[in-house]
Amino acid sequence: MTRVLIVDDHAAMRMGFRTILAASGLEVIGEAASGREAVDAAASMRPDVILMDVQMPDLDGIEATRLILGDAGDAPPRVVIVTTFDRDDYLFAALDAGASGFLLKNAGPEELVNAVRVVAAGDALLAPEVTRRVIERFASPASSVAPALTPATAPAAGQDVDLTEREAEVLRLLAQAMSNAEIAARLYIGEATVKTHVSNILLKLGVRDRVAAVVYAHRHGLA
């Protein structure tokens, strides 16, 4: 069972998230009301997924994410930023800090549950309304944020990437912000097969997650 830590400085919001997740069979192992509490709770509880607010007392959610993921060893939790504020600076800073997802608090219960399950499975998730902005911002060669998503281990522009024909096809569909289920339906293959292809793509590109793969594909003409 996926173990979730909820971090938000509003008790009512934490209770709402807990109710939604518990009703969907997800285990909420703890709550934190500040970024500092989140860092301590993540270290002691070892959650699989953290739902992280941004604006909190003591330590904001983005810096808390950076500290948690920087000190998590070989099995870091997956962090989903959940915020009221649809701001680009929050979005890009969250991704740069290592967050695997970005969701707005006006998302429905099904979207919240899906976000937890998607990132717990090793994928990354962005609210649909921000996906285009991420691609436009990070795909620019002049982007100052892109290096965080395109590490030094990634092949340079123009350098051949040894993708199979099927992997290249999956990458093109990833670059259209398709989910594993949508890619599976498009290519008439199983979701498990898609997940294997995505894992191979991330390894070969030397990038962190599928969001980084999408950015890489757009920046390097592979989309």
Rank of each mutant, 00 (worst) to 15 (best):
P155N: 01
P141T: 08
Q176C: 09
P128F: 06
I81Y: 04
R87N: 13
R137I: 14
L104F: 06
L126S: 08
V79N: 10
I135Y: 06
V130I: 13
L149Q: 11
N114T: 02
V161G: 04
A168C: 08
L187W: 09
E169H: 09
R132A: 11
T164G: 14
T150K: 03
A154W: 06
G122M: 03
A181N: 13
G101Q: 02
L163F: 12
Q159S: 08
A99E: 01
D86T: 10
E136H: 07
L149S: 07
A156L: 02
R172I: 02
V170L: 07
F92N: 10
I183S: 02
A115F: 06
F85Y: 13
R117E: 13
A152F: 08
A124F: 04
P109A: 03
T84D: 03
I183K: 01
E182W: 01
E167A: 04
A185V: 10
R172G: 12
E165G: 03
R172V: 07
A177G: 12
I189P: 09
P147C: 06
A181V: 14
A156I: 03
L173T: 09
A185Q: 12
R166T: 12
A99L: 01
A185M: 07
L95N: 11
V130E: 05
K105C: 04
V134M: 05
S140I: 06
E129F: 02
N180L: 02
I189S: 10
L91F: 06
V113E: 00
R87S: 14
G122T: 05
V80D: 04
